[in-house]
C-alpha cells in the first residue's frame, strides 16, 4: 500500500517534470535570458569575435528574438553545438532555439519532432578544391578523398551524388568545420564539401583564399533555418514572426538607423502595426507591442544583417541570390502582418 502511494508520487513528479518544459516563452521570460544553440564557430554565421562577443548572420537572429521577447538583444546565452550534438541539445531543452545553419528536412520535421519555423538562408551543398588540382566540375572527382562533417545532411547528399553519377570516393568523416579545414589544408582530403555558404565562410578564414575554388555544382537543396521543439506553437510563432518582422522591415525600408524616424512619421498601416503604433500584434503573441521594433533595432533588418555579416562587402562575399526579397527576384517572402 505504502509502496504504491510512493510510486504514484514518483510518477506524478516525473510527469510534472516532463510537462513543465512545454511553454518555452514563459521559461525564457522567467529566466530573463534566451538560450540559443549556435555553431561552434563558423565565421560570418556564428562565431565569437576578438572580444568574445558572438557575431554573425545566425547570431543576429538570436539577438533579434531576445530583443523581441526580453527587450534586450544582449540577453542571449550562446550554447555552441556541433553537427552531432545540436538536435539532442534542442530536444532536451538545453537550448530554447537552434539557429545554426541547420537544414530543414522531412525527417527532422516529423520523426525528430522539431519545427523549422522559417528559412533564413536558402543554400545548397557544394565542393571546395584547391586550384592546383585542376578540377573544374564535381563530376571529375572520381576516386577523390572528400572531407565531410559528421551528423549533417551533407553526408547523405554526398553518398547520393557519387552514387547517382556512378563515381567513387573515400569519405573522411570529421567532427567540425575547423577540423575539416585542417585536414583539407593539410591535403588529407582532395575536396571539402558542405553548404556553399559554409564553404565561402571557411575560405574567407584561410590564409590563401585565392588558391581555393568552389565548384559550380550545387548538389542539394539546403534550406537553413531556426528550429524549435515540436508542439510548442506559441514559441514557434514568436521565432517565426520575429524573422518575418526583419523581412518586412527590409521590404518597407526600415533600417536600424531610421527606425525611430519611421516610427514617428510613417502613415503606412502595416509599418504602424509592425512597430506597435497600431493594433495589438505583439500582445496576440504574448509579447509587448514593441517586439518588432526592438527586434529590428537590435541589428537592423534582414538585408542589413545579411550585408553586415556575409554580404559582398565582407570577406565571405556571398551574393543575395535566392535570399533576395521576393520583390527582387529572390525567395524571401513574409506573409502579411495583420
Amino acid at each position: 500500500m505504502k509502496k504504491s502511494v510512493f510510486l504514484g508520487a514518483v510518477a506524478a513528479a516525473a510527469l510534472s517534470a516532463g510537462v513543465a518544459s512545454a511553454a518555452t516563452l514563459d521559461d525564457v521570460k522567467a529566466r530573463g535570458e534566451l538560450l540559443c544553440g549556435s555553431n561552434t564557430g563558423l565565421t560570418g554565421f556564428g562565431a565569437p569575435d576578438a572580444n568574445g562577443n558572438w557575431v554573425g548572420f545566425d547570431v543576429s537572429l538570436c539577438r533579434a528574438v531576445a530583443a523581441a521577447v526580453l527587450g534586450d538583444p544582449a540577453k542571449v546565452k550562446f550554447v555552441p553545438t556541433t553537427g552531432e550534438t545540436r538536435f539532442t541539445a534542442l530536444a532536451s531543452g538545453e537550448v530554447d532555439l537552434l539557429v545554426r545553419n541547420s537544414t530543414w528536412t522531412y525527417s527532422r520535421d516529423t520523426d525528430l519532432k522539431f519545427d523549422f519555423v522559417a528559412v533564413n538562408y536558402y543554400d545548397g551543398q557544394g565542393f571546395m578544391v584547391k586550384k592546383d588540382l585542376g578540377v573544374s566540375s564535381a563530376k571529375e572527382l572520381d576516386g577523390a578523398t572528400v572531407c565531410i562533417q559528421t551528423g549533417t545532411t551533407t553526408e547523405l547528399n554526398l553518398a547520393d551524388f557519387f552514387k547517382f553519377n556512378n563515381i567513387s570516393y573515400t569519405p573522411v568523416t570529421v567532427q567540425d568545420d575547423s577540423e575539416a579545414q585542417r585536414q583539407y589544408l593539410a591535403g588529407a582530403c582532395d575536396a571539402y564539401t558542405t553548404d556553399a555558404s559554409g564553404l565561402a565562410a571557411s575560405r574567407a578564414t584561410m590564409a590563401d583564399p585565392e588558391n581555393h575554388i568552389i565548384l559550380p555544382e550545387i548538389i542539394s537543396k539546403e534550406p537553413l533555418g531556426p528550429a524549435v521543439r515540436h508542439g510548442d506553437n506559441q514559441w514557434g510563432d514568436v521565432v517565426r514572426w520575429t524573422f518575418y518582422a526583419l523581412l518586412i522591415a527590409e521590404e518597407k525600408g526600415i533600417t536600424k538607423a531610421n527606425i525611430e524616424e519611421v516610427a514617428a512619421s510613417s502613415t503606412d498601416p502595416e509599418v504602424r502595426r509592425l512597430l506597435g503604433l497600431e493594433g495589438d500584434a505583439g500582445v496576440m503573441m504574448g509579447l509587448d507591442n514593441n517586439w518588432a521594433k526592438n527586434a529590428i533595432a537590435a541589428n537592423g533588418n534582414y538585408g542589413e544583417i545579411f550585408e553586415a555579416n556575409i554580404g559582398t562587402a565582407t570577406p565571405i562575399g556571398l551574393a543575395r541570390g535566392l535570399n533576395a526579397l521576393w520583390t527582387q527576384g529572390g525567395l524571401q517572402y513574409a506573409p502579411p502582418l495583420r
Partner: peptide, 29 residues
C-alpha cells in the same frame, strides 16, 4: 525508467529499434 518514459512521451517520442533495418545512406571508409 518511469521518468524516461514520461519525458519521451512528453516529447512525443517512443522507443523503437526499427531504424536498424532502414537504409543507412552514408559511407564508411
Amino acid at each position: 525508467v518511469d521518468n524516461t518514459i514520461a519525458n519521451l512521451a512528453a516529447k512525443d517520442k517512443d522507443i523503437n529499434f526499427g531504424f536498424l533495418w532502414n537504409r543507412a545512406g552514408y559511407d564508411i571508409e
